[in-house]
Design a protein around this nucleic acid. Structure first.
Lengths: 218, 218
DNA sequence: AAATATTTTTAGCCTAGCCTAAAAATAAAA
DNA sequence: TTTTATTTTTAGGCTAGGCTAAAAATATTT
């Protein structure tokens, strides 16, 4: 059996490797976990003993087959619980992360499958992130950062790259929830800010927003 | 903040005190927790430092006001999650205990209230146990052990005193789920077994079953 | 009341996860 | 290539929550 701490490390390794392929370095892992490099090294030894990772001193770590399955499963559970919290319990998309962080560690037979059935096999979570299926397969859809759109292009909001409550609340205030439509009116060369139309309203979005907002071009 | 371990001890103290009023002794607590008396003493010191219990060396322990609130809240959460697992996810009543044991420790604002709303404010869990409200108030309904019924009396199953999967499965096989109706046909003086009619079927139930099955007389 | 049995506590040890500080390995610069 | 900087690991400690064995307190017999 794996502990919650172990699971969180596996997830962190997965997350880092997803963005920057190749072996994950100790410092990066420690930063992601909000802990010290010494603690990360410690844990890497334990995970290596349990064959959940392939770890070479000073050279970094990668997930083993088993480790990868566990991490994928955690992400699946995390995202399914988020759907539950938003769709069934009525939480806002910026309120559910901490709950899901706990719920993903609930252990036991068939819980995930039953939850998935109950929710109607959702493919994306409330932030637009794909939910892997029971076999660990992902359905990634094509999406682009708002920054890559040019004046005149229109898009549908499909996801975010920043999951912080402040960003999510800001988007909600702007009416930019998943599925919202927007049109790029202009891009300022100076600071890469984007002027957009959302429904009737026109607003200027900073480069930071342009970086962190995903859309599907229509 | 309280840890899961602390919470489980508080719940155990509550449970023992419920059946046998007065101070809870260390050995009884250790037995309930499936641990050693030394470990229980250890934890009692921690709980006492946090003012969650009133503990006197060698004399036993009782819950403080705060401790009692935490324990009641845990039971509330446990039972609400059980309702969720049975009513929404479709688990059987003998399958949900271990899940609920984990789910009751999920921390965070408004989760319990939202869950309660979503479930439609159930008053009893799938085993017929009452669910305390947000203030910690209980609605206990009148119920009698099957053993106290005499020949000719009829009753509706309202709960169980034994929550073990084997007992619950046995009851399910007999058609004795919550709300089922039965009629006492006879009681054998020799071994206190009860002959009952459940729908069309007649069966003999042991003294043990008679002890552990609650009914409302009709 | 003394002896014996039982219960509870203390003492000392273990593991998982964290920490800081120091040492060692690797990478970069001179 | 030697020096310097950075990264990673090791060493040694800490806390929560367990354990066993021994000591102390309480309860029960004789």
């Amino acid at each position: 059996m794996t502990t919650s701490a172990e699971e969180n490390y596996l997830k962190a390794i997965f997350k880092i490797a997803e963005k920057e392929p190749g072996a994950v370095l100790t410092n990066a892992l420690a930063a992601e976990m909000g802990t010290s490099a010494a603690s990360a090294t410690d844990m890497l030894k334990r995970l290596s003993d349990k064959q959940l990772v392939v770890y070479e001193k000073y050279r970094g770590v990668t997930l083993s087959e088993t480790g990868n399955k566990i991490a994928t499963d955690l992400i699946r559970k995390h995202r399914l619980w988020e759907v539950f919290l938003v769709d069934k319990l009525g939480f806002a998309w910026d309120e559910v992360h901490d709950f899901a962080e706990q719920l993903e560690h609930i252990q036991g037979e068939h819980l995930t499958e039953r939850l998935d059935d109950f929710l109607g096999h959702p493919r994306y979570d409330p932030h637009g992130d794909p939910i892997p299926d029971a076999k660990g397969e992902w359905i990634r859809r094509p999406q682009t950062r708002l920054l890559t759109l040019t004046a005149g292009q229109r898009g549908i909001v499909t996801g975010v790259d920043d999951h912080s409550p402040t960003f999510l609340q800001y988007l909600a205030e702007l009416g930019l929830s998943l599925g919202a439509e927007l049109e790029v009116l202009d891009r300022t060369a100076y600071d890469q800010s984007t002027k957009v139309r959302i429904g009737e309203r026109e607003t200027v979005l900073s480069e930071k927003v342009g970086q962190n907002l995903y859309v599907r071009i229509i």
